[in-house]
């Protein structure tokens, strides 16, 4: 009888191990509605609405002409991504891994929603490339410790800078530079305020860095 017990136990463990491997991929749904500084919340809420209206319009526009979309409409499309990015940046400034992970998750969703089809075909390839790369970094930020989040944020910042270089943006942004990060190779980031708040070091070196240029 004892034998039965033992073998049952072993088999049960095998089954548990099996089922554990199959549910590895459960992804959590990021939601930006809490744990965020109110200033950026307002932006995001507003931008989110804009995006929805916009995607409805898209379909009408597409029938007539793809290139009819104005620069302004293109910049609206990236604004949700920029909003999520700034939220992520603020979380890293605040050394808040949890909030950064959440913002990363929200950003993955915004990147997924980004539709390149209204852009001229010459730009679509690069946009897709940027989006794909950014998505990978945002996904990692969603599930990494804070030092890794910052490493991914470095490359993600480049992606977002390149993205808005194509789409344009309707908001005023500051492109900042921290010379120390990355073994003194330096790293860029975007901020909505002129004051330096360093997302790579957070409270350790809050004011390290300088404004490289103002966008808009």
């Amino acid at each position: 009888m004892k034998k039965v017990k033992v073998s049952t136990g072993i088999l049960a463990m095998a089954v548990i191990a099996l089922s554990a491997t199959s549910c590895k991929d459960t992804k959590k749904e990021g939601n930006s509605t809490d744990g965020v500084q109110s200033e950026h919340m307002d932006d995001n809420g507003h931008m989110g609405d804009g995006m929805d209206d916009h995607s409805d319009m898209d379909h009408d526009n597409m029938q007539s002409s793809e290139s009819m979309m104005s620069t302004n409409e293109h910049s609206m499309m990236s604004s949700k991504i920029v909003g999520d990015y700034l939220e992520l940046k603020n979380a890293l400034v605040a050394d808040d891994k949890g909030a950064a992970a959440k913002a990363g998750g929200t950003m993955v969703a915004s990147l997924n929603d980004f539709d390149t089809s209204s852009f001229p075909s010459g730009q679509q390839e690069e946009l897709k490339d940027i989006i794909e790369d950014a998505k990978e970094h945002a996904e990692h930020i969603e599930k990494s410790p804070i030092d890794h989040q910052r490493e991914h944020f470095d490359v993600l910042s480049k992606d977002v800078i390149d993205l808005i270089a194509i789409t344009g943006t309707e908001r005023t942004l500051y492109q900042d530079f921290c010379p120390m990060y990355n073994d003194s190779k330096g790293a860029q980031w975007l901020s909505a305020t002129e004051e330096i708040e360093n997302p790579y070091y957070g409270s350790k070196m809050m004011t390290c860095g300088s404004v490289q240029k103002q966008i808009n």
């Binding site: 039965v4 017990k5 088999l11």
Partner: peptide
């Protein structure tokens, strides 16, 4: 019951 479960698991494995 234990015996039955054991057999079921064994067959599954």
């Amino acid at each position: 019951a234990l015996k039955v479960t054991g057999w079921i698991l064994l067959v599954a494995l």
